[in-house]
Simulated assay, not measured.
Amino acid sequence: MSTETILSLLGIYLFIAVGFGAKWTFKEKIDDRTITLLSVYFLQIFLTFWGLLKRPIDTELLFAPALYLGISLLALLLMIPLAKMLFDNPKERSIGTVAALIGNTGNLGIPLGIALFGEMSVPYLTLINLVNVFVVYTIGVFYYSRGEFSVRDSLINILKLPVLWAAIVAIALNLIGYIPSPAVDKTLMMGAYASMTMQLVLFGIYLYGIKLGEINLRLTAWVNGTKFVLIPVIAFVVLGMVEMDATVKGILFLELVVPLAVANVNLASLYNCSPRTVTVEVFTTSVVFLGIAFFLPTLLQMF
C-alpha cells in the first residue's frame, strides 16, 4: 500500500480522534444530538451541492453506479430475511439489515480511489457516491426509522430530510448545465469540508461512550460478515458476468468494500436506533478494513 494511501487513511482517523478527545475532555458539555442535527439538516446540504455540481454528469459513466446500486439492492434482498431470522429486537434487525450497505464512499472512498487509480477514477467515484447518497437517505432512513417508527412514518421521514431534495435540485442544475462561479464553488466547498469533518468528529464523540461490555458480538459479527464476505462475493459474481474495463471494475469493487460510513451514526442518532451500537459497527469495520487495505492492490488486480 502506497504512502499516499496510508496518509489518506490516517487523515480520516485523525478527526475521529479529535471527536473522541473532545468528548473525553469536556464530557456532557458537548451535546452530540445538537451536532447531529446541525450536520444532517444543514451542512450536508453544502456537501451534496458541492459534490453533484463538481463536474457534468456523463451518461456514458452511469453503468458503474447502476451496477453499484444493483449489487446493493441484491445484497439487501438477501439480508432482509436473514436479519429477520437472526434478530428479534427491531432496532438490531434494522441495523443488521441496512448498516453494511451504507459504506464510506465519500470521505474514504474518493481519496482512497484517487490514491489507487489516479484522477481518471474521479468521475466514477463521484457518481457512485451520488448513488450511495440516495441509498443513505432512502433505504437507510427507512430502516433506521423502522427501529422505532411505523412503515408509514418511516416513509415520511425520508421525505422530511432536506438532503434528498438538495440532491434532486443539484442533479437538475447539473443536467441543465449550471456551473457555479468560483465564489459559489468556494462557499459550497467550505460547507462540504465542514460537513465531512463534523461527521468524523461526531463518530469520535460517540466512540467515547462505548463500553466493551455493551458490544453486541453477534450483531458485530453479522455486520462485518455481510460487509466483507457477503457483499464482496456478490460483487465478484456480478462483475464476472459483465463486460467492463478492469480498472472500472476495481473502482466499483473498492467502493463496495469500504467500511461503514459515519452517516450510519447520524441516522441512528436522529431516529433513536441505538446510535452507540451503530458506532461500534462503524468502528469495527473501520479497524477490519485497515487490515484489508494492505491487500487491496492484490485483490483489485483480480479483475
Rank of each mutant, 00 (worst) to 15 (best):
V258I: 15
T25I: 15
M198V: 08
N157D: 11
M302T: 15
P182E: 00
K186C: 05
P123R: 01
I171P: 00
V223S: 08
I110E: 00
V288N: 02
D31S: 13
Y41K: 13
G250D: 02
Y137S: 03
V201Y: 00
N89P: 12
V223D: 01
P162N: 01
K23C: 02
L86A: 03
G213H: 10
K249D: 04
A64L: 11
A64H: 04
L230P: 01
I171H: 00
F236R: 10
A293C: 11
Y144K: 10
S154H: 05
A64Y: 07
A263H: 13
L108W: 06
L62F: 07
G19Q: 01
L207H: 06
K249G: 04
D88H: 15
I102D: 04
K27N: 13
I80C: 09
I139A: 08
F289E: 04
V169M: 03
F134N: 08
G19I: 01
I176W: 00
N216F: 04
P259G: 08
E92S: 13
E4G: 15
F303G: 08
N89Y: 13
L73W: 08
I139Y: 04
V135P: 04
N272T: 15
L76S: 05
S145I: 15
F20Y: 03
A172W: 09
F26R: 11
I35K: 01
A83Q: 13
G291F: 12
K54H: 14
A75Q: 03
P65W: 02
P111Y: 08
R33E: 06
V280W: 06
G118F: 01
T59A: 07
G213E: 05
L67S: 02
Y208L: 08
K27G: 12
L78Y: 03
P232D: 04
F15P: 08
